[in-house]
Design a protein around this nucleic acid. Structure first.
Lengths: 209, 209
DNA sequence: ACTTGAGGTAACTAAATAGTTACTTGTGAG
DNA sequence: CTCACAAGTAACTATTTAGTTACCTCAAGT
């Protein structure tokens, strides 16, 4: 290690971060190896030195990013609050996770469209793992009479995912409806409130608040 | 016109349809002009003869597809049913429109990611126009005491859009949750029921059924 | 019959781009 | 000091691909 080792790590990491940004922006096909190298202020040769190929660099970017959401799963477990309160917490966590990880969201979207060449197998049921507590909370909610038993949890997971994602991925649409920037903190919080409102009324037996 | 004219139209149309499928599958960058030509059983030269450039062909494909949704907007206006029933009808129309137009959905998604180079201006507020009746229905619903007044219509439009789209664009996720094909007619109807259920409970003052 | 011009073909060109090769530099161990 | 070797550079190659050029074919009007 020492000066050399740090420099190596620096170069490798810088490449990964620049690659993340550019792959997220332009997709695997659209990204240019030369652009990544230039952005990272590193010779193109180094990409092949550290990452063997463009595809492999892309895979590393995906691995790194999908790792983030596994970490999220941990946070959600504790809390002795009521099932409905817990549901709110989960939605909030998830929404802001997506809002704060634009690259993750875009990489996910690219993967979806490309049909996930090799990398698709990197996130098998990532949401399933990311929201391990949701099923339990839901079950508790039903047995405690707070949540209607006719709601399918899987459908709800998809729905929450969709309600959050759509706001963060369809900027054009937002702009056409509101004619203003919709990702300011205030607007994000508004959107989250709407989602929570919709979901709570959508699944609860009755709403008191 | 005559025999020659038909042949011309045939070639032009065949190109457009093949281009639609391939652009929808692979995006503007990913699609190969040669592949489109081969698929349409037409010489590549003819693409440039009829459509000048790859980008322009892509633009024509978008125009053609975005035209479909404008047509949808008409259907929704009439009907003297109650606001909530009308809401169901709109959601149902929209959901099945998306389900039956996979290419449209994918083209939309590509456009979103690419940041809509030139073609983006082709769909300014397409959803706004596609659902012209929704605002009215919503207003009526509020004034008739069926719909809660604290629900933002724009947010709801986004939400319905997201609830439908997510199911049709995130196949991987569906498969990871259910381990089976989720776009069979039965499954689609199930999903639609869930969406309607969620939205109705989400916005209604109280649900009788 | 024959000319005309749109519909059609195949082989080519120029540019872009993933990946390589042969070379140079700088640092730490002996 | 100097040797070994990883880090880094620049110029090159092979391939892919959008777009063109020069040529052919055949149905319709005269």
């Amino acid at each position: 290690m020492g000066g050399r080792g740090n420099r190596q790590e620096d170069t490798k990491e810088r490449l990964l971060f620049c690659a993340e940004r550019i792959f997220a922006q332009k997709g695997l096909d659209g990204a240019r190896v030369d652009e990544i190298a230039a952005e990272a202020k590193v010779n193109k040769r180094m990409i092949y030195h550290y990452y063997q190929s463009k595809e492999n660099l892309y895979t590393e970017v995906l691995k790194y990013n999908f790792g983030k959401i596994y970490a999220l799963g941990e946070k959600v477990f504790d809390s002795a609050a009521s099932p409905l309160d817990n549901l709110c917490i989960i939605i909030r966590e998830y929404f802001y996770f997506l809002a704060n990880n634009e690259n993750f969201v875009r990489l996910l979207s690219w993967e979806n469209l490309y049909g996930s060449k090799q990398a698709g197998r990197l996130l098998p049921g990532y949401l399933k793992n990311a929201m391990p507590g949701l099923r339990k909370i839901f079950k508790d909610g039903v047995s405690q009479g707070q949540i209607r038993p006719d709601v399918d949890v899987n459908q709800l997971i998809i729905s929450i995912h969709g309600l959050c994602l759509v706001y963060l991925t369809r900027r054009e649409l937002l702009y056409s409806l509101w004619r203003e920037d919709m990702v300011s903190p205030v607007r994000l919080e508004e959107r989250l409130k709407h989602i929570i409102n919709l979901v709570l009324h959508g699944v609860a037996v009755s709403i008191s608040e």
